[in-house]
Design a binder for these strands. Structure first.
Lengths: 209, 209, 209, 209
DNA sequence: GATGAATGAGGCTTCATTCAT
DNA sequence: TATGAATGAAGCCTCATTCAT
């Protein structure tokens, strides 16, 4: 997954004081974005959250876009880390699917506010649309490969198109997480994982164990 | 479904000339929103698209948000109309599900640009979030009732939770449409409907006919 | 002489009220530039001098540069008009030179403050340097042609190089005007014209009448 | 001629390291001013050119204006030195005038970039206007004395006003140098000196040798 | 002394909304 | 009713100067 902030060239501090200030700004930016969304966040809000003067923001970043890119990079890295931290508890397809779903929901829940902001920005920023596209591509690609593998093993019948299945089931998990964790529809994590996994497996004709 | 613009009290023209101008503005607004998204659309753009003077906008609307509400009302009405215009070709669950999915995709495709804009605005406007919540509620409610009915008829087993299933499968259809029609991922409508329906049915344990 | 504002595309008002406001802005800009120089003139100063709101400036101009270009165009037109309004009182070279010098000094005096501002801006703006270059070229070209003519008539000897003479004598008149009318060195217009003309004629070997 | 920086009280370094740093700053300032003009030169540019840290600038100078004053002092000293380094090759008025003109053009050429910057700053800084006024006064005063002397010797007739003549001919030389060396109009130094001197002498009625 | 980070005042521009014709 | 001009609040960015290490 490409880094969003790769192209950006923010000022890199030399001193430890500078490193501290820069980190404060990134943390402050995340707090501000989570509190007010991207659109309603002003540079002055970021500076206030970071507890530095207005002008200090521009010592390290040239725009709100630039610091946002860095916050998103951190977000995605954290998302991946949490999602993949789930313990492997079985080797059956259902176990793998459940593990993936649980990791996804957990990572989403831990970063729900920023995921909402990312979802927001992806609707008007071409660059962030690309970021989301890449993130989606990553999950869809993984699923597609697994489905093909299961078809090769005779576990999934050939009437299933791996591309459509991966896209649709990915959409299901991603959007369900949004509905529960951003829109705030009622849910229980265990039940959600269980039902998501059941629907996922049965739609492919896989045993639910 | 509540109308977004119910609360607003827009100026209602008495003369036919006024009605024409007002209609031009609504059409111009939709064109402008579709072209540039909500955020990048200025009142001046709407007036220009409508081919009326800047100030005329405020003869009929008090704000950009107000005219947007009206555009969204029209959008949702059109969406419903198209979605429900699908011919009933069978009485089996699979036939009903396919009809619903096909109607949804068709309606989405016909209004894809505005759906993208609605998706955008729903990320920062509480009122529009409510509109989307209602639209979602409508589809989920319908599905939930159908699933319960199928369970009563013994077609769907009791391990399926109607609320989660309706939520997740609704998310699947809604998000897949977004991925294909807004993000532009490749798809073929017939194949998409067929696969969506297959996944939908099998996840519930329904025959795909 | 090319117009500086040719490329600019300012908003052209439709109504008479708009025309009045725009004219107020141009007049206010000139007043502000004359009072504080180009560098110390803020958009807010121009708006204040024009007695309009801050934002109104941007209804007609996109920047301080743009309105300045228009003020300079007006300045140069006025300069030319005044300089050429001198009555023709004789046909001898000395009479023509005196007439030119008197016209130049008079036009300079009537526009001295803006000439100072133009001189200032020409030191850092490539576009305005070009304007000044053109204005200079106009006068030098005229002189050069006259000198060649006088050489052809045997009034000026061949040791004079028309290009250098026109350049140097143009520099003399132009800079003397600056010294007297911008720097404020003491001078009397009649004496200045008389002495300038004397030096000019004698340097070329022309009779001073 | 008064020194521009006389009133200022810059920090005078005690150590040799300090002296070196200070000298680097002055050299860097000149380089920066010549590169970008006064207005576009930032303190950070000066520090960068001098290869010292940003804050070090303020160890030795209190402002951009202060270091500029010092650069200008150096400039004028160098100008004088070069202008006066011309060998005395004759005692006739024409020889003295030619020597002065040649020295002026040579000194101007060697310092053309900074002369342009000085010309720029003199349009908005009262202090630098004074500096230029003094420099001008120096040359005009010298010429005026010479003309009076020549009048006493019967070499220049009484119709010439020494003040006007010195002012105008000084303006001619000064502005011609600017036109050639700052504006970049084509010129050849020998021809320029020759023609300037010819015009200068003949305007006063002096033999050109 | 030298360094590089922190500060915040100042000026610019946009554009939703109001107003005069 | 239609028009298009006028308004000014809000947010952005720069950079001279000050400060902590």
């Amino acid at each position: 997954m490409a880094s969003l902030s790769e192209v950006a060239t923010p000022h890199i501090p030399t001193t430890s004081r500078g490193r501290r200030t820069r980190a404060q700004l990134v943390a402050g930016a995340r707090a501000a974005f989570e509190k007010n969304g991207y659109l309603e966040t002003r540079v002055v809000d970021i500076a206030a959250e970071a507890d530095v003067a207005y002008g200090t923001f521009y010592t390290y970043f040239t725009s709100r876009e630039e610091i946002f890119a860095e916050v998103v990079d951190d977000l995605l890295a954290d998302f991946q880390a949490i999602a993949h931290a789930e313990p492997r508890v079985g080797r059956t397809p259902a176990a793998r699917i459940e593990r993936s779903n649980r990791g996804y929901l957990r990572a989403y829940r831990k970063n729900a506010r920023m995921m909402a902001v990312l979802e927001q920005t992806a609707t008007f920023s071409e660059a962030l649309m690309e970021v989301r596209r890449n993130a989606r591509g990553y999950w869809v690609e993984r699923s597609q490969r697994a489905i093909k593998q299961w078809q090769a093993e005779g576990l999934v019948d050939e009437s299933v198109d791996p591309y459509y299945a991966a896209t649709c089931l990915g959409a299901m998990v991603n959007r369900s997480a949004y509905v529960w964790l951003v829109l705030g529809e009622p849910y229980d994590e265990d039940a959600a994982v269980e039902q998501l996994t059941r629907l996922y497996c049965r739609s492919l004709g896989l045993p639910t164990d």
